[in-house]
C-alpha cells in the first residue's frame, strides 16, 4: 500500500523544510519528497505524513532533523564534475588569487561525500605537486554524508571522469571497484558540519578566497539564496574572492554586488 500526501500536508511540509534548511521543493518535485520521506515513515513506524509532520514540529522531534536533512538532500556528486570549472580554478583563478598571498583558503560549501574538495586538492596537486598553496574546507548539512567524506572510499561512478593513471596516482584500490583516497590528499582537507541556512555556523568558517557552492542553492528559494549569498559576500569572502555555483546556476537576478566573470567555458562571480 502506498502512502501519499495531500496538498495541504505538502504545503506545510515544504514550508517547514524551507524554514529549516532553505531548500525549496517545487510542486513538480513533490514525488521526490514523497519518495524520500517514505523511508523515514518506515523507520519511525508511522503510517501518515501528517503524523510525521506533527512529530518533527514537536520538541521531541528535534532529534529527527538530521535524518530529515539526510533524507531530502540529494547527494549526487562525482570527481571532476563540471570539469571546465575545475580547469578555470586551476588555470586562472588560483593564479590570480595567489598574486597577493602565499596561500589561499578554499571552501567547498556543500561538499556531499567529499568528491568536490578532494577534486580541488587533486587538481592543484597536478599543478603544484603535493605542497599545494591552499587549505581546503569541506562542509555539508548532512553528518552522515560527511562521515563518508572523511572515510574517502568511492565506487566506480564517483571516479568515472578519471583515467587509470589518475586513479592510480590518487587512490588505493581496496577491493574490486572500491577506491580509497590516498592519505596525502585527505590530509589537505578538513570537514565540518555546517548548515548554510544558519548564519552563526556559516560565519564560523572564517575568511575564504574561493567558495564553491555548486548544485545546492538550486534547492533553495530565492529569499534564502539571497541570504546565503549576502553572507558569502559580506562576511566570508576576501576582497576579489570568487564564488562558483553549479554550471547552470545563476544569482544575477538577485540583488548582488558580485561581478559575473567569464573564463574559458566557465563563469564565476567575483567580489
Amino acid at each position: 500500500m502506498s502512502v501519499t500526501m495531500d496538498a495541504k500536508t505538502f504545503e506545510d511540509l515544504r514550508l517547514f523544510i524551507y524554514q529549516k534548511s532553505g531548500i525549496f521543493f517545487e510542486k513538480s518535485k513533490e514525488y521526490l519528497l514523497t519518495n524520500r520521506l517514505k523511508k523515514r515513515l518506515d523507520a519511525l513506524n508511522m503510517s501518515t505524513f501528517e503524523e510525521y509532520l506533527r512529530y518533527i514540529k514537536s520538541a521531541s522531534g528535534q532529534k529527527e532533523m538530521t535524518n530529515l536533512f539526510d533524507a531530502i538532500t540529494i547527494n549526487e556528486t562525482y570527481f571532476f564534475r563540471h570539469i571546465k570549472q575545475i580547469e578555470a580554478i586551476k588555470d586562472a583563478i588560483v593564479d590570480e588569487l595567489l598574486k597577493n598571498k602565499r596561500s589561499i583558503n578554499i571552501w567547498s560549501a556543500a561538499c556531499s561525500s567529499g568528491e568536490e574538495p578532494y577534486t580541488i586538492v587533486i587538481a592543484l596537486m597536478e599543478k603544484y605537486g603535493q605542497n599545494i598553496p591552499a587549505r581546503i574546507l569541506g562542509s555539508d548539512i548532512s553528518k552522515e554524508i560527511l562521515d563518508k567524506a572523511k572515510e574517502g572510499v568511492y565506487g566506480e561512478y564517483a571516479l568515472k571522469e578519471l583515467n587509470s593513471n589518475m586513479k592510480r596516482k590518487y587512490f588505493d584500490t581496496i577491493a574490486p571497484g572500491k577506491y580509497k583516497i590516498k592519505d596525502f590528499v585527505k590530509r589537505k582537507c578538513i570537514f565540518k558540519n555546517i548548515n548554510l541556512m544558519e548564519e552563526r555556523s556559516l560565519r564560523s568558517v572564517g575568511k575564504m578566497d574561493l567558495i564553491l557552492c555548486r548544485n545546492v542553492l538550486i534547492y533553495f528559494d530565492s529569499k534564502s539564496r539571497q541570504k546565503v549569498i549576502d553572507t558569502f559576500y559580506n562576511n566570508i569572502l576576501n576582497p576579489n574572492g570568487y564564488l562558483m555555483l553549479g554550471a547552470t546556476e545563476s544569482i544575477s537576478r538577485l540583488n548582488t554586488k558580485f561581478k559575473l566573470c567569464h573564463f574559458k567555458m566557465a563563469i564565476a562571480y567575483q567580489k
Partner: peptide, 22 residues
C-alpha cells in the same frame, strides 16, 4: 570575439578571464 574565446571555439589555450560588465 570575447565570447567565442570563452566558449572555447577556435584557437586559445589561454584561460584568462574577462568581465562583460566592465
Amino acid at each position: 570575439d570575447l565570447l567565442t574565446y570563452s566558449e572555447g571555439i577556435g584557437f586559445g589555450g589561454n584561460y584568462s578571464k574577462f568581465t562583460l560588465e566592465e
